[in-house]
């Protein structure tokens, strides 16, 4: 009897152990250790910092489950974060400031991308690419300008630049929405638009498709008419951020680690680029990283002065209150 009892106990113990070995603690099962943070952004260079944090395990280390959804425009992202469908989003500050001016609540974590734009034109228009700013923009008079979404960050930035060049953005140009990198490519190459606000992903796609373009105005890097420009900032839903301050801090810390790894770890950048689909394979991602890394490595720091600067690109030059809308301590977490 005793042998059979011991055998029974042993069998049960083995069964339980086998079952439990299937319970991996780090796979985010319901009621598991990880806290889910839902994120929405455009799958392109602006999301590189988050990508680096996820690929490098920084989020997991903080006990966070980073769950990204990829959108086609800043408008969708803004509406998703404000509406509470997502906890964190990646959005252009000009668009965000104007929404805050309209009464929206949002908490900014840190800037995630410096200037990485460009104005490109169809080569058959034969625009002069050597003219300096602002003169070169006068060539755009009467042309059709394509932006990702009407009224979103890209349009706001170009409107400011046009005004500085003495043009009326309401009457001197025609605005057209061209959507995500894929549809923007189609709109540009099929001649539906004359000029497009370009960014890394779009230029990569254009080159891959063998389509040529004239770069009328370089807007990427630190020495452009855009100045200390933030192309994107991480913004959090108010209710979520205010009720989960610890989670927010952990998120900030992980994100900061992601950016640090981009600056210090040679392998981190290409992997992050591959995560956001820049480059069809590892080699391509590595070479593209060498060309396009600076907007996510040299980001103007989060100071009150830089915060105020971004209002230059809003229609009414509005700056939201720094202490109310920026989560203190996040950028250095």
């Amino acid at each position: 009897m005793r042998i059979e009892a011991v055998g029974c106990v042993a069998a049960v113990t083995i069964l339980v152990a086998t079952a439990c070995s299937g319970c991996a603690p780090a796979t985010g099962s319901p009621g598991g250790e990880l806290t889910k943070v839902s994120f929405i952004g455009v799958q392109e260079q602006g999301a590189t910092g988050y990508a680096a944090a996820d690929v490098g395990g920084a989020f997991a280390e903080q006990g966070l489950d980073f769950a990204p959804t990829w959108a086609t425009s800043g408008s969708v992202i803004l509406q998703g974060v404000v509406g509470g469908d997502f906890d964190v989003g990646n959005v252009g500050p000009a668009q965000l400031y104007t929404a805050i001016e309209n009464g929206v609540c949002a908490r900014v974590l840190r800037p995630t991308e410096g200037a990485a734009y460009g104005l490109i034109a169809r080569p058959d228009l034969h625009l002069d690419v050597h003219r300096p700013f602002p003169d070169t923009l006068r060539q755009l008079k009467g042309l059709r300008i394509g932006v990702a979404a009407r009224g979103a960050a890209q349009e706001l930035v170009v409107r400011t630049l046009l005004k500085e060049a003495g043009l009326d953005p309401n009457t001197d140009v025609t605005w057209l929405a061209v959507g995500s990198p894929a549809t923007a490519l189609a709109a540009f190459t099929s001649g539906q638009v004359d000029v497009v606000m370009s960014y890394t992903q779009l230029e990569v796609n254009l080159r891959a498709a063998g389509a040529s373009f004239d770069k009328v105005l370089v807007l990427s890097g630190s020495d452009t008419p855009l100045g200390v420009f933030w192309q994107a900032v991480a913004v959090a839903n108010c209710a979520w951020a205010d009720s989960h301050p610890d989670t927010v801090m952990k998120f900030c810390h992980a994100l900061n680690q992601g950016f640090a790894s981009l600056a210090n770890d040679r392998a981190a950048g290409p992997k992050a680029f591959a995560y956001v689909n820049i480059g069809a394979n590892a080699d391509e991602a590595a070479s593209l990283w060498e060309t396009y890394k600076s907007p996510v490595i040299d980001i103007p720091p989060l100071t009150e002065q830089n915060w105020r600067y971004q209002s230059r690109f809003t229609p009414n030059n509005y700056t939201p209150d720094f202490s109310r809308h920026v989560v203190a301590g996040c950028a250095t977490a």
Partner: peptide, 22 residues
């Protein structure tokens, strides 16, 4: 709303982008 040179649909998209609901 999808794509157009002019029209109320375009304006609505434009203003919704910055939540200018008025």
């Amino acid at each position: 709303i999808l794509a157009s040179q002019s029209g109320v649909g375009q304006l609505i998209v434009s203003y919704s982008a910055t939540l200018s609901m008025a």
